[in-house]
Each structure stands twice: as C-alpha cells, then as structure tokens.
Amino acid sequence: MYYNLYQKKLQQFMLNKEQIAKRIAQELQDGFYVNLGIGIPTLVANYIPDGLDVVLQSENGLLGMGPFPYEGEEDPDLINAGKQTITTIPGSAFFDSAMSFGMIRAGKVHLTVLGAMEVADNGDIANWKIPGKMVKGMGGAMDLVAAAQNIIVAMQHTNPKGESKLLSKCTLPLTGVGCVKKVVTDLGVFNITENGFECIEYAPGVTIDEIIAKTAGRITIAPTVKEIAI
C-alpha cells in the first residue's frame, strides 16, 4: 500500500494493475464498508478518493484497517487476512471470525473486490482451485461472494496463454454462482447483465473489436460506451 506511482508518459495500451485499482476506486462511495481481496484489489486502498469516508474490513476480525506499520512497529497480533502486518486507525474495531462473516452475510459490507481465474457471463466466478494442482483452500472467498451486496472482480482479461477469462461458462470449480456484478480488466469495464457482459468502458488504446475478440462469453456494447477516465 502507499506505493509511489511513477506514471510514465508513454502511450498507454491497456490498463496496468495500478490503473485497474484506480478505476475500481471510482466505484467507492462515502460511508462504504469494503472488503478488499489479495492482489490487485489490495491496491484499491491506495486510491480512495479524498473526502470519502471508506472503512476497510479484514475478514480475520478488523474494521478500520490502516496502512502497513513503520519498521520496528510491527505487531504479530495485528495482521490482515493475507497475514500481513497492518495497523489500526482511530475508530477501528476488532471482533471474532463468526461476527466478521456474520456482518458480511447480513449485507453490512457494501462492496467486495476480489481477483478471479474465470468469470462467466451470468456472474459465476472461479478463483480457488485448479484440479490436478495443489489445492490451498478457498479461505473466505466463498463466503464473501455468496453474501456481499456488490462484487467487483479485478483481473486480467486473458490468461498467460492469451485465452479469455470472461467465459460463457466457467471451466474451473466454482467459488460462487451468479454473484459478480462488475468486472474491471486491463481492457475495459463490464457490467454483468441478463445479456451477459456489457462493455461500458474501454481502456485507452483498446478497440471494441479487440474486446469482443478477447471475450469468450456473451457480450454487448453499451450505447454510452466511453474511454476509461483515470
């Protein structure tokens, strides 16, 4: 968190991870309680717009997650769900794991941002298991996707082989069904609708044709589609 950003003034094609995080931060609203997953979602904390009161929830039992501690001030009793040392902020609160998932299940957490291996055009998500590889477990991902009011996925549009991660049906074991509301990738921003992915924004330098070609699931283009502003 709190990285210095060295924005290169090169022509941009597609969004980098920081820019995906920055775009997702535009979804935050004043008073939101938010759970951020590991990876790109964690970076969203760096771009919370000034003046917005946003409280970060860590599912191991903390509301009001602060930045990493200064060196020498790490406390082994104070970690986030990624097991990283963190700090509290004025107004923080601790609680046990049942209450933590209770508040998630009861819809008190307004937004969950998490990564994914695959998303289907009906909102199914797969992000915890690749059959045949070592299985580490789902952690809190299944609970979060089943219950959060609003779920945004942050991920690359294609896998390292160049294959689409936006599918008509997930091929990997599911984490949750019909739960994703929005996907932000390096190529664009997509709502999940009855008609599949709806492209509402595209990244600078990316064409609609490219987005359509790299999306395996059903896709429509919003009449109001525009370039992502970050």
């Binding site: 709190y2 990493f68 200064y70 060196e71 790490e74 082994p76 970690i79 097991k83 040392t85």
Partner: peptide, 10 residues
Amino acid sequence: KRIEQRTVRK
C-alpha cells in the same frame, strides 16, 4: 509469535 508476512512502510 512468529510473523508470516512482515510488511512495513518506509
């Protein structure tokens, strides 16, 4: 009290 992921800011 071992720390798994020691993360700090400068």
